[in-house]
């Protein structure tokens, strides 16, 4: 078994959106939509604000509410690395999963089905990194298997402080942010 995860170093990230545009070309994401995006979070006041920049996407949660609410089984957890995916042909476009995702990571593709980040599973299956990871000019993104203690993601999580998004939502995200 493997559990794929992404570890993103917010210290290195400059928020350039290369991950976004790489995803758009790799996955032919239609114009006006995105599967990943940049969030800038500012705490404090000038002249001593604190800024965290994050590349966000589907968190491929271990407890995915989008999967449990799906009436047709279109949203599912894939055996390969526990990635959360959508069968386009099973999806009826009811949008329950969009409403169920606390991260608003999904959207309705113009062709009618729910769509989102796939962790570029088609690339991962070929031994490549997801497009966003492979393109990042700051090398702030890492992809790998949490079940492999020697993987880069496991090592980074063991050695650096990190957080996930909305852990209180109980979804157990698999995208981690190093601080």
């Amino acid at each position: 078994m493997s559990r794929f995860a992404m570890v993103i170093d917010t210290r290195r990230c400059v928020g350039c959106q290369d991950c976004v545009v790489a995803c758009k070309t790799e996955n032919s994401v239609p114009q006006g939509y995105c599967r990943d995006w940049i969030v800038e979070e500012v705490h404090g006041a000038f002249p001593t604000p604190h800024l965290e920049i994050r590349s966000e996407r589907c968190n491929h949660c271990a407890e995915p509410p989008c999967v449990s609410c799906c009436p047709t089984g279109a949203s599912h957890v894939h055996d390969f690395g526990g990635v959360v995916l959508v069968h386009h042909d099973l999806c009826i476009g009811c949008k329950a999963c969009l409403a169920a995702c606390p991260y608003d990571a999904r959207f309705i593709h113009p062709d009618g089905y729910a769509d989102k980040c796939t962790f570029c599973i088609h690339r991962v299956a070929k031994g490549l990194d997801p497009a966003c990871v492979s393109v990042c000019p700051t090398h702030c993104m890492h992809f790998g298997d949490l079940d492999d203690p020697t993987s880069e993601v496991s090592r980074l999580l063991a050695s650096r402080t990190h957080h996930t998004l909305l852990p209180e939502a109980g979804t157990q995200p698999r995208v981690f942010y190093l601080t």
Binding site: R11, V14, I53, P137, H139
Partner: peptide, 28 residues
């Protein structure tokens, strides 16, 4: 330059930014 900047940040280089705006670089 940005790649090397990220390397420097990742390495823990001391970064000093003078700017009227709290730029992305300033945040590092």
């Amino acid at each position: 330059q940005v790649q090397e900047f990220a390397t420097a940040v990742g390495r823990g280089a001391s970064i000093i930014v003078a700017d009227p705006r709290f730029s992305v670089a300033a945040s590092k």
